[in-house]
Design a protein around this nucleic acid. Sequence first.
DNA 1: GCGGTTCGTCGAAGCGCTTCACCTGCGTCC
DNA 2: GGACGCAGGTGAAGCGCTTCGACGAACCGC
Lengths: 357, 357
Amino acid sequence: MSRRGRVASGQPTIADVARHAGVAVSTVSYVLSGKRAISELTRNRVLASIRVLGYHPNAGARALASRRSNVIALVLPLRSGIQVPVVMQFATAVVTSARRHDHDVLLVTSDEGPEGLRRVAAGALVDGVLVMDVELHDVRVPLLRGLGRPSVLIGVPADTAGLSCVDLDFHRAGQVCVEHLAGLGHRRVALLGAPAAVYDRGTGFAHRTRAGVAEAAARHGVEAVTMPCEENATDVRRRVVELFARYPDLSGLVVQNEAAVGAVQAALAGLGRRVPHDVSMVAVCPDQFAEHAGPRLTSVPVPAEEIGRQAVALLMRKLAEEPVPETTLLEPRLTVRDSTAPPVVDTASYGGPASVR
Amino acid sequence: MSRRGRVASGQPTIADVARHAGVAVSTVSYVLSGKRAISELTRNRVLASIRVLGYHPNAGARALASRRSNVIALVLPLRSGIQVPVVMQFATAVVTSARRHDHDVLLVTSDEGPEGLRRVAAGALVDGVLVMDVELHDVRVPLLRGLGRPSVLIGVPADTAGLSCVDLDFHRAGQVCVEHLAGLGHRRVALLGAPAAVYDRGTGFAHRTRAGVAEAAARHGVEAVTMPCEENATDVRRRVVELFARYPDLSGLVVQNEAAVGAVQAALAGLGRRVPHDVSMVAVCPDQFAEHAGPRLTSVPVPAEEIGRQAVALLMRKLAEEPVPETTLLEPRLTVRDSTAPPVVDTASYGGPASVR
DNA sequence: GCGGTTCGTCGAAGCGCTTCACCTGCGTCC
DNA sequence: GGACGCAGGTGAAGCGCTTCGACGAACCGC
C-alpha cells in the first residue's frame, strides 16, 4: 500500500505521481528518462503532477534499478607539496562539468588509500572514477585497471596502456619556457621546480617539465640547471642565493611552483637583481596570479578548468562505452608579459647586483 | 534466479554470500550491521565467505532498503575572496572525519545554487548536509530549515534558531588580537580585513572579527580603524600606504587575510617600516604559514581541522536523532611570535620611515 | 516439568525505481 | 484489405538490501 511511502519518508514517490497524473508508473519513468516516445499531452500532465507534488526521484532506488548511480568519484591528493589553488580549480571544474552531464561528485581522499577507491567502486556507489595527482609508478594504476569501472587520470603515469589520461603537456611546457628565454638570447637558465618530495614520489608533471627544459636547452645551446624548491620563503631564498653563487651568469629563471613565485621575487630583490632587467623569469602559474604580480609575469598557465572539463567529458564517453584515446595532452600556451627581456650584454651599462646593497 | 546477479554486474550479492556460507540472507545482513546477536561460529563463517567472494554491499540497494545512503553533502563555496587553503583544510577534515563515521562525502558547489542542495537532499542521495561559508543572511538558511534533513553550518548566520552551527569565535578572535596589541602598549591599530566583496555579502566571520576588534579597542582605549583588503599585491600596497598616510601614529596591524600577508610585509618593507620594530603585526592565518614567514608571525589560526571534525560529529549526532546545541564556538588561540613588540616611544632613537628612501 | 525469556536464525515483504514484454490503435504499403 | 510497423501506453518482474515477525532451542525460576 503506497500510503506507506508518504508516511515513512515524507517524499512523494513515482507511484504518487502516476496516480496524480492518472497514468502508469512506467509512463512517468519514461517521461523522466526520455527513453520512449510519450505524447505531448501525457508528458505535460506528468510534468505538472511532478511539479505539484514536488517529486524528486529517489537516488538509491534509481541506482538499484538502473545500475547507475550517476555519481563519479574524484580522488584528490591531500598531501604535501600540492598546489592547493590549482587542485581546487580542478575540483570545481570537475564538479561543474559533472553536473552538466547530470552527475554528482563524491570526494575521495588519497589518504584512505587505494581501499577507498575499491570500496566506492565495488559497492556501486560511483559509476566511474577520476584520479588526480598521478605518479609515474602509481600504486593505484594496477587497481584502476582491475576495477571494473571506467576511470580517467588527471596526470600521466609511465605506462598508460589501457587507461585514459588527460594533462597539460608539461614536457612541451618546459620546452616552451626555455625556447622563449633562448629566443631572447639567454644562455644559462635554471628551473626552480616543485618541492623535492614531489620529484621523489615520481610525480609526472614535475619530471616531464624537467625533461622538456633539458631537451629544449640542449637543442638551443642553452645551459640549464634544475633545482627542486620548497614553498617557504626561507628555503626559496637559500635556493636562489645558491643558484646565483654557483652560476653568476644565470639570466633566466623558470619557476614551476606558484606558491614560491612571490618568495622568488623577494629573494631576487634581496640580491638586488631586477626583473626583467637583470634576470628574466617565466612562471608556470595561473594567469590571474601572473597578472597581479609586480612586474606582471610571463607565464604558462596550467589550464585546470579545461583539463577538468576534458577529464569529465572523457569519463562520460567511457560510461557510454564509446572509445576514447589513451592520452590527451593539452598544448601549453605561453603569454609574454613584463618579466622577461633580452639579457644585458653591455657590461658598461650594467646596473646590476653589485651596485645595490 | 540469482545467477543473473553475477552475470549482470560481476559483483557477488548478499545472496551469493548467504549461499556460500550456508545461511539465510538476513543472517548475513545482521552480521554486517550488528543489529542482532549472531553466534561466533556463524559470524566467522559469514565473514570468511565475504572475504572469499570479495563481497561489497551494493550502496544503492542498501540506501533504498534502509533509507540511509551513508553519504553527506558538503556544500563548498567556490567564489571570490575565499581562502582556498583554509577551505581545503576544511574539506579534508570533513572527508576524513566522515569516513571515520562510515560516511562518504558528496561535493556540492554553491554555484549550482540552493537548487543543488534541494536536489541531493530530496532525492535521498545524502542523509545530511554540511554548509560552509555561511553569510549572515544566507538564502540557504530558510531552505535548510525546510529541507527535512539534518544539517550543520560551518559559520554562523544572524538567526541561528533551529540550526546547528560551528565556527571559530571570530568576535573573540578580533578581541584577542587587539588585547594583545593593547597590552603591548599600542594606541592605534588597524584591521586589514577580507576583500570588500566578503563584507558586502555579509559573511559572518568578517563582520564578527571587525566587531570584536572594535569592541576590544573601545574597552582598552585604543583607536581602531578597519579596511577591507583585496589579495593582490597592488591593492594591498595601496591600502597600506593610505593607512599610514592617514594615521601616521599607527603602530599595530591585524591582518585577517592569509593571502595578503606576504604582500603586506612587502608593502611595509617598501615604506621602510620594520616588523616588529616600527609596526607590530598579528595575522589570522594557519600556524604553518605563520612559522615560515620572516619574521615569524604572531597569529591566531583558524582551526579548520577541528571545526571540520566537530561539524561532522554534530551532524552524526543529528542523524542519530540526538539533541545538539545550536551554536558551537571554538575559543581562539593566539600564539605570540616575532612580529609583535611594544611600540617605539622614544622618538630620539626612532630609526623609522623617514630615514629610508 | 512447565510457562516465560532470551538467543540465534530464517522467510518474506517491501524500499522506489527501471525495463521488458505485451497490448492497442492507427496509418501505410502493395 | 490483410500484413505490417510504429507510436503510445500498461503491468509486473526484478534490482540487492534491511527489517519485521515467527520459530525452535536452550535456559530460567519455582
